[in-house]
Amino acid sequence: MPMKYSKKELDKICIELRKDIVTMLNKAGSGHAGGSLGSVEILVSLYWNVIKHNPKNPEWEERDYFILSKGHVCPAWYAVLARRGYFSREELWTLRKFGSILQGHPHHLKTPGVEASTGSLGQGLSISNGIAMAMRFQNKPNRVYCLLGDGEVQEGAVWEAGMTAAHYKLDNICATIDRNMLQIDGITEEVMGLENLEEKWRAFNWHVINVDGHNVEELTKAYDEAMTVKGKPTMVIAKTVKGKGVSFIENQVDWHGKAPNDEEYKKAMAELEEAERRLG
């Protein structure tokens, strides 16, 4: 399937979304900057090129499902949902505020387009399996997408879900691991080594695809490939840079759960605007 949107169009959208994310976090005064900025291209590929959805009717029977298992990066998801028209962009500035439809971690009873409530890591892949099974019971073609963090994969329940998806040959599932090599306490390989991550998923009978997680073309191609895989779930391991797009946040462990203050916000916006100019 060809890209519905060109790489240049999407790259521009990614920068716009990053500006939204730093603005949201600055206004909120808290939230997860690193993971949010790093997962933008993954979400954009899915929401612009891959998944079937209808922002005007989030419960559309024929929609594909997306589960954000790493719920803490919801600022990026909220920015995507707003830009796709699930709710007004003005709502973004209420993130984490009392009475907001945008909770600190995703809650599906509050936010249009959010399917399940996540934030306690290690549950989203199981939820995805359940949806995939339900679709199969009802002979429906809807597909299920799930985004996990690499640190999150240390949760044992993720591997239970890995076994389940493969055991039941859930080829209507395509999950992505945001492989940014960082978690809260440091580098994943130092905190609790995950390698060889690719071989682990292969050994669990998943179809595995490695991609550059900041290249929307590569990501889209991977998701297209997943649609052709029969009898197996697909895991896309997306190599990313945590904090991507803002130099002083990139690859910084300390920026995991932090929001930019006013000064940092200005610096970040200047960088992103400069990147936008360069893109033309």
Binding site: E115, A116, G124, I127, N129, G130, I131, A134, A161
Partner: peptide, 8 residues
């Protein structure tokens, strides 16, 4: 958690 997805 899978049951949650099935219900959804």
């Amino acid at each position: 958690a899978t049951a949650g997805g099935l219900a959804l």
